[in-house]
Design a binder for these strands. Structure first.
Length: 957
RNA sequence: GGGCGGUUAGCUCAGUUGGUAGAGCAAUGCCCUUACAAGGCAUGGGUCACAAGUUCGAGUCUUGUACCGCCCACCA
């Protein structure tokens, strides 16, 4: 074996081997009868043309760790992979590429454009799946799916049609969030509200027909952050209880610039204490005003086009969807086709010129921006398809309330409930080309027919060939298809064997940022569409493991524009500084950021990034995966865990040195002897196994990683390996003792590998293959071995106590050596005083071990009354460990040392005595706790006494 | 405005039913000792954000305050 662990040389071939040999497919595929209980996970589908980021790395590590664990537990595991067509995101990428050639999608036309997107998908679609392989993810690639492949498209159509038949999908003209750059409607969730600075314009609206306010003015003042929408005002509202305006309710305003008469109405929506208590109502351009307008049956006056520029004439509708032909739809010609912000400037100027601008205040407001385009979203009146969510939400809420679905950690259930209980209908149509075309057809009169295809529509509605039908131009929200993910990927609507066996799935691992987008909608859609044989709804998954976001080491979100993005594969493979800098500064939205990013990158990674390997990265993710919080990604952790891999690697080298070509007692013969150390490490192993199983069962990968790390490094390597050496080096050790130790060494190592495998698949497979025969293990791969489980019978309390005793002596002697700078090479004598018979027996048993481990010359046992030469002292309970001072130890230094030790104890005595003198404590605390305190204080008192005596003796010299 | 989470060693984080505060990294000292310098041995370092309460006893439970972060809603 290499002297150090070299990840890249061992990681490459194993994945290919695993995949080729079909280890990732469910056990039932090759062994229909002998497989365990089904266990299924679906990957959150990444964007098909995307590439791996740290979030994927984290998410995949968690999933793969759990699926490998379940597989080794004997479950019939299916982990299925797929990619998402990611409507807007993908279409935007392709449009941007075309734009570089000066071509728009409209130049190409729908069909040719879609060809281009498919081309791009073919070209870049393999990237993410290749990268996921590099992470070691054991997904069943034979069942890989894509949201727009045939099967899934069928499922999407089927779902749409069924929901429509059940009255849960409808089409209507309503206000939607309109993205004036992308020219599509988007759902509420795709709108991000940003705090931005703006202004509040206070406008004077002249009263018509000579009306005046109570204080004699001939106008009302309305305030707005969107003055340009005044062109579409259809009322001014006041609070019905506002005495100031009672007499004006029912009167009219002459809307400036437009010269349209609009009524003054009363509505509870208006807060009389805010501003003047008068609100302009623009039902076609504001969600609140829309509701007010609906209550008062006001006309919806749309003054914006799809680019959010002012129309030449307003489009006026009634709330029943019909065109309003009675209202005057003329608009001032001056603003026609002006962009909303230019129009704002000019309208404000015109109002000011007319003396109608009362004042302008600074105002902080939330600005709605599209999460993809970044432009300000416009509430806009259009025809869209909606899912009626309230009826779907009810059972979906119940499923979480009654525990059929559980969130880990539980606090996310609150987030889920609060959103679901106040859910709004979901706009699912998008004015895009890339996606699932809505299965609806229109005849010449605009009547709509929904069906699985045109032929079905025709036969169902008796539409002859003479009637022209046109399919809806729009596509569905990407999240509609991903909402069907758990079952569409298993073959639904067909009742496939896989669907029957693996649905409901067991676990969903995902970030909290898509609980609403994805998790909630999956629950709603699945429960409505997929039923058990008895007709009850199927849930999509039993447990939702919610993890945080991966942030940089400063806690900042990783983003291209901040230049703090880490590519997981750069941590795996390493990257030199120049390449990293180039990677970070190319393709920036704002090239001006480049110098800053370059500087920051050079500072943070002066040497680039080393190749730490997949296992180290995975272990890092696991160790940071404490639930419910974001993780700050720290490169130091990766390095530490790379070192951990190296530790395992080198421990293996030692074990092989001792065991290779030797009898390791794996032939069933029992002519071996287990030492105290052997029995101790076996005991400790059981405890570690127990803890790790528990932590993995409860999704605490961080705790599992910690236990594993501590067991391997501190107990197996630092103690057990060291304790084993004297046995191998001792010429008087018997063959059966050596054999017992070899057996333990190799078997514990092999168990460690199996314990670690779900977290670190590559290094464990590599080493396992090297040692499996020595350890008596069988099988082609560690992947399909059984996961270690604790056997309580193997826990040996005597061995544990004995080794702890040994450790106490060793640590104390080491400390004395260290405190007095006694050279490593120099052997010393030790005297043991005031030892019990148990101490004596232990000493007899471990005499040679002790001598070897701490470089002792002779260990002298002092009987009662026997005195040691003047010594440095360490206490191990009653027993005194004495190292003669002669020539080695400075008198004053030893006094200082003992004084310090004594002071420490005395402090604790005082603290404990105070506690014990409290009558209430002695009376009310459990007897055990009190006894513990008393015992400790007694022991400490004796120790202090001994230390004092010793100080006096040395002083007397 | 409503809700959730966080505040523990210099940094990043654990801390299970209340019972003497833990890890990794970093720091310091000594060691190239035949698995490993990506290492070994040892050491230092914490008023557990603050305040009050419950309790014999609070990092842990209750209430309040401060600061940080997130989600949702929003007064035009």
């Amino acid at each position: 074996m290499e002297k150090t662990y070299q990840p890249h040389t061992i990681e490459r071939q194993w994945y290919q081997t695993w995949e080729e040999r079909g280890y990732f497919t469910p056990a039932s595929t090759s062994n229909p009868d002998g497989a365990g209980k089904p266990y299924c996970m679906m990957i959150p589908p990444p964007n098909v043309t995307g590439s791996l980021h740290m979030g994927h790395g984290f998410n995949n590590t968690v999933m793969d760790t759990i699926i490998r664990y379940r597989r080794m537990k004997g479950d019939d595991t299916l982990w299925q992979m797929g990619t998402d067509h990611a409507g807007i995101a993908t279409q935007m990428v392709v449009e941007r590429q075309l734009a570089l050639q000066g071509v728009s999608r409209h130049d190409l036309g729908r069909e040719k454009f879609l060809d281009k997107v498919w081309e791009w998908k073919e070209q870049s679609g393999g990237t993410i799946t290749r990268q996921i392989r590099r992470l070691g993810s054991s997904v069943d690639w034979s069942r890989e799916r894509f949201t727009m492949d045939d099967g899934l498209s069928t499922a999407v159509q089927e779902a749409f049609v069924r929901l429509h038949e059940d009255g849960l999908i409808y089409r209507g003209k309503r206000l939607v969030n309109w993205d004036p750059k992308l020219h599509t409607a988007i759902s509420d969730l795709e709108v991000e509200n940003h705090d931005e600075k703006g202004f509040m314009w206070n406008l004077r609206y002249p009263l018509a027909n000579g009306a005046t306010t109570a204080d004699g003015k001939n106008y009302l003042i309305v305030a707005t952050t969107r003055p340009e929408t005044m062109l579409g005002d259809s009322a001014v509202a006041v609070n019905p209880n506002d005495e100031r305006y009672q007499s004006l309710i029912g009167k009219f305003i002459l809307l400036p610039l437009v010269n349209r008469l609009i009524p003054i109405i009363a509505d509870d929506y208006v807060d009389r204490d805010f501003g003047t208590g008068c609100v302009k109502i623009t039902p076609a351009h504001d969600f609140n005003d829309y509701e007010v307008g609906k209550r008062h049956n006001l006309p919806l006056i749309n003054v914006l086009d799809k680019n959010a520029a002012i129309l030449a004439t307003a489009h006026i509708f009634n709330f029943d969807g019909s065109l309003n032909t009675t209202e005057n739809n003329s608009l001032p010609a001056a603003y026609a086709s002006l962009d909303r912000y230019e129009a704002r400037k000019q309208i404000v100027a015109a109002l000011e010129a007319a003396g109608l601008l009362e004042k302008i205040d600074d105002h902080a407001l939330k600005v709605p921006r599209g999460d993809r385009s970044g432009v300000v979203i416009e509430p806009w009146l259009t025809d869209q398809w909606y899912v009626s969510t309230k009826p779907l939400a009810e059972p979906a809420i119940a499923a979480v309330e009654d525990g059929r679905i559980q969130f880990v950690p539980k606090q996310y259930e609150n987030m889920y409930f609060s959103w679901m209980r106040d859910i709004q209908d979901w706009c699912i149509s998008r004015q895009l080309w890339w996606g699932h075309r809505i299965p609806a057809w229109y005849d010449a009169s605009g009547k709509v027919y929904v069906g699985r295809n045109e032929a079905e529509v025709r036969s169902k509605h008796n539409l002859g060939a003479d009637i022209t039908l046109n399919q809806d131009e729009d596509v569905l929200d990407t999240w509609f298809s991903s909402g069907l993910w758990t079952f569409s990927t298993l073959g639904w609507p067909e009742q496939t064997e896989f669907l029957k066996k693996f649905h409901p799935t067991d676990l969903l691992v995902t970030g909290f940022d898509i609980i609403f987008f994805w998790v909630a909608r999956m629950i709603m859609l699945t429960m409505h569409l997929v039923k058990h044989e008895d007709g009850t709804p199927q849930i999509p998954f039993k447990t939702v493991y919610v993890h945080g976001l991966v942030r940089d080491n400063q806690g900042q979100k990783m983003s291209k524009s901040k230049g703090n993005v880490l590519d997981p594969l750069d941590i795996v493979d390493g990257i030199d500084l120049e390449t990293l800098v180039q990677k970070r500064i190319t393709g920036l939205m704002n090239p001006k950021d480049a110098p800053k990013i370059e500087k920051q990158t050079r500072k943070e990674f002066p040497e680039g990034i080393q190749a730490y390997g997949t296992d180290a990265l995975r272990f890092t993710f696991c160790s940071l995966a404490s639930t419910g919080r974001d993780i700050k990604f720290d490169m130091g952790r990766v390095e530490g865990y790379r070192n951990f891999c190296n530790k395992i690697w080198n421990a293996t080298r030692f074990v092989l040195q001792q065991c290779e070509d030797q009898d390791c007692a794996q032939d069933g013969a029992t002519d071996y002897e287990l030492s105290i150390s052997d029995r101790w490490i076996i005991s400790k192993l059981q405890l570690a196994e127990k803890a790790i199983n528990e932590h993995l069962d409860t999704y605490r990968l961080d705790l599992a990683a910690q236990v594993l790390y501590a067991f391997v490094w501190d107990e197996y390597c630092s103690w057990y390996l060291e304790l084993s050496k004297p046995i191998f080096w001792d010429p008087t050790a018997t063959d059966s003792q050596k054999k017992g130790t070899r057996r333990t060494l190799i078997r514990v190592l092999e168990t460690i590998l199996r314990l670690s495998h779900p977290l670190m698949p590559f290094i464990t497979e590599e080493i396992w293959q090297k040692i499996k025969s020595l350890a008596g293990a069988t099988g082609e791969t560690i992947m399909l071995t059984r996961y270690p489980e604790a056997n309580e019978k193997k826990i040996d309390p005597v061995a544990i106590a004995d080794v702890e005793w040994l450790q106490t002596i060793i640590v104390n002697v080491r400390k004395i050596r260290d405190d007095f700078k006694i050279e490593q090479k120099k052997t010393i004598d030790v005297f043991i005083k005031n030892g019990s018979t148990v101490d004596f027996e232990r000493l007899q048993l471990n005499d040679r071990l002790l001598k070897k481990l701490v470089g002792l010359n002779e260990i002298h046992w002092l009987n009662k009354g026997e005195e040691a030469p003047m010594s440095a002292t360490a206490l191990a309970g009653q027993m005194e460990i004495l190292v003669p001072m002669a020539g080695l130890i400075d008198k004053d230094a030893e006094i200082a040392r003992l004084t310090k030790e004594s002071a420490k104890l005395e402090q604790d005595i005082i603290k404990t005595e105070t506690k014990l003198s409290n009558v209430a404590f002695v009376e009310k605390a459990p007897a055990e706790v009190v006894a513990n305190e008393q015992a400790r204080i007694a022991e400490h008192k004796i120790s202090v006494e001994k230390l004092r005596e010793q100080i006096q003796k040395i002083n007397a010299l």
